[in-house]
């Protein structure tokens, strides 16, 4: 499971923005919203006749596989980096 998401934004003539997001504390903080999202996903699975357990398992696999992903985009002197550890 991802532990830390790092976001860096470099903009010309402005101070760079660097944000480190610890995933677990933020997920705990947003727990009520996470529960609502999971419930909505289960309802959607029932509506579209998809196995809810399979769907949640596949979704969890995607989240678990995120560590190591890195997206680095530069345009001139503007740069955005998103790294998931």
């Amino acid at each position: 499971m991802p532990q830390l998401v790092t976001v860096k934004v470099n903009r010309p003539a402005r101070r760079p923005i660097r944000v480190w997001v610890p995933v677990l504390p933020v997920a705990l903080l947003l727990f009520p919203i996470v529960v609502l999202v999971v419930l909505a996903a289960i309802v959607a699975c029932l509506v579209f006749r998809i196995g809810a357990v399979r769907a949640l398992g596949a979704g969890w696999r995607v989240i678990s596989a995120l560590p190591g992903a890195r997206f680095d985009i530069e345009q001139g002197r503007t740069a955005v980096l998103v790294a998931i550890r």
């Binding site: 696999r61 995607v62 596989a65 992903a69």
Partner: peptide, 22 residues
């Protein structure tokens, strides 16, 4: 000059394939 540098774990692709199967 612009540059895009993306690194995606292969495990994520496999998980995505399983998700796409649904």
């Amino acid at each position: 000059p612009s540059r895009v540098n993306v690194r995606v774990p292969l495990q994520l692709l496999r998980a995505g394939v399983r998700l796409a199967a649904l």
